[in-house]
Simulated assay, not measured.
Amino acid sequence: MAGIELHLFFSPTRDELQWAADATDGDEHLLALLLMLKSYQRLGCFPALEDVPEQVVEFVRRQVELPEGTLPLYRAERTAKHHRGLVRKRAGVKYDQGEARRIVEWPIPKEAAAKNRPADLINNALEKVVEAGLELPGFSILDKMASKIRTEVNASIREGIYDRMSTAQRAGLLRLLEERDSDGTTLFSRLKKPAKGPTWSRFKNLAKRLDWPDELGDTSVWMESVATGKITDFAGEADASKLRDYAPIKQIALIAS
């Protein structure tokens, strides 16, 4: 962790040091409480003391001039719980993980309809929890929630693409994985082949080439209401080496994308 980040986010103020000193009865607890306070201010949740980087522990210890070798320790869970309560009171937040999860679950499906990266899905949800004055759920909980919801939303979008096709159109897309061009490559590889550099002759060839996928079906119908970013993500998943392992609905939706 860079020194400038340590100074910006982990330097206790004089007021914070006095507050922590008034609430504790020894150097170990003083250091532990300050680490909980500064970690919460930075992360919005409480890490386990053993997960706080050693350089952060050492930086805070030196900032408040505690003896060399002082370690942040809780010998009883009730003390750790009491300290978390003190930090929440000072930060003006409540601990209600059920409500925090409910708030998180509301925006993620909407975001997942247009975005695919878990980080993108989580960030907006976190803002809502902070606005509500609640302690953030742990990142692992958020990551699992985002992944689960993203999977459900993606499956729903793919089913919609599949349902908007005729039986003949679905069969036509699946044939792309089997039928081959004169050079032995599949028609699917031909579909994904990028255009070459722009010249007039190549432009005319490209125009002819576009007539071929247009014959496969009307993609504007298939992709109705599907976000452009989601189409791009699905197209990126359409790897010939993996497509055969997917269920037919996913296969067809990715090929269509």
Rank of each mutant, 00 (worst) to 15 (best):
L210A: 10
P213F: 03
Y40R: 07
G184M: 05
S140E: 15
T199E: 12
L37V: 07
K204M: 12
L17M: 11
N154S: 10
E50L: 07
K81E: 13
R101P: 05
M165H: 05
P72F: 04
R88Q: 09
Y40F: 06
I161F: 10
P248A: 02
D233N: 05
L191G: 00
L176E: 07
L136W: 00
R102S: 01
W212S: 01
K110H: 13
A168R: 07
K128N: 14
L243A: 09
K196D: 13
W222G: 04
R62C: 06
A21G: 10
N123W: 10
T13K: 03
T185P: 04
L31D: 00
T186L: 04
A112V: 09
D22F: 13
R75N: 02
S147Y: 13
A100V: 00
I231D: 03
S189K: 00
E16M: 04
K230M: 07
A32K: 02
R61N: 07
A132D: 02
V130R: 08
L134M: 09
R88T: 02
L86Y: 00
T24L: 05
G217C: 04
V226N: 04
P198F: 07
L6S: 01
L71Q: 14
D214K: 04
Q169K: 11
L134P: 08
D214T: 02
L210W: 04
M1V: 11
R202P: 14
E28V: 03
H83D: 12
D120H: 12
L206V: 09
Q97F: 09
I161W: 08
R180E: 13
E152M: 03
A23D: 07
D163Q: 15
V87N: 01
Q41M: 05
I157W: 00
G236F: 14
A125M: 09
D163M: 14
G133I: 00
R90D: 05
F234D: 10
Y95Q: 09
K242Y: 10
A48P: 08
S257G: 06
E127N: 04
H7E: 12
L66Q: 09
M1Y: 13
Y162T: 14
T186G: 00
T232S: 08
R14A: 15
D22C: 08
S241H: 07
E224L: 15
S182N: 12
T199M: 05
Y74V: 14
I149T: 14
A227Q: 06
A168H: 09
T199D: 13
E159C: 08
D218T: 12
D25P: 01
A207F: 05
H82E: 15
G3Y: 03
